[in-house]
Amino acid sequence: MNTKQRTIKMLPLLVGLVVALIVPLIVGKNQYNMVLVTTVLFYGVLATAWNIIGGMAGQLDLAAWAYLGLGAFTSGTLLLRWNVTPWLGMILGGLVAAGFAALVGYPLFRFGVKEVWYALSSAALVEVLRVAFLMWDEVGGPVERYLPFHRASWYHMRFASYVPYYYIVLGLLLIALFVNYRISRSKLGYYLLALGESEDAAEVIGVDARACKLKALMIYAFIVGATGAVYACLFGFIHPSFFNTAQSTEVAILGIIGGMGIVYGPLLAAIILVSGREFMRANLGSSLESLYLAIYAVVLIVIALFRPQGIAPLFRKAYDWLLSRVVGERYAA
């Protein structure tokens, strides 16, 4: 592959990055729009991280918000109790989430819990944590615990506008994408893709399936946990309702719809589906509260049925077609 071809391949990424960087300059005045784009990116981070365990390793994890909640509670509690900055809380939250993932994942993989049962046990995990934190009065409990409010304080990761949050989430997204990309080009990535297709076949050619799955789960949990710390600051409080099964499922759905194992797939799905959902929510909102959910569900079913490979290959084709039109077949990726 020569440099020109490489540039052409990276072009969408560059354009996307530039657009992402200047979005706040365009819509930054409007708080509502800023919430929208931040939400989209936020789901983008979660779905991209999910791609490691779900898309590559083929383990249908439905516990994204379990790790998110753990990160949020870790960072939030550290801030409330000992005034630890959320910037450090992000890392510690990620570590706690990853540690918890190891604790849960080890026996699951050790005892061969797979497929549906893995999915269900991870869904159950979210509920277990929600109830556990509701009952754990020292850090959780039924009342929201508000983080100390400071107007625009970097130390507390609290800002008067959504723009800084947007850039923080964008940073997380870039990290998640980079990690994904690096893994997909490494031994671990190939191993994950292989065992996701057939664990037996991977094992007999030397893949330690349990260890690989556990690594994937921990990396995913770390990214999601770190994101959780930001989530807590964004909302300004922590609450057991952060452990949300429906939203965890949605993360997995974005990953599936995007295209399992394709680095940029989940992000694409998040951009299209989440912004579509938020748009509908805003425009159908008061009159037909749930119509947007219904439309969302139908879109999901249709894509899952007719595009089981996800939407990413479609974009790839469209881009190739566009390239062949613009610069000629020779450079088409």
Binding site: L193, A201, G261
Partner: peptide, 25 residues
């Protein structure tokens, strides 16, 4: 190592990448 009677292919991987998985051993 072994092969399987009912083939267990890594269907989303290319031939090259499938071989790579083995070669990492």
């Amino acid at each position: 190592s072994r092969t399987f009677q009912v083939v267990k292919a890594f269907s989303i991987l290319t031939v090259e990448d499938t071989v790579r998985v083995g070669a990492y051993n």
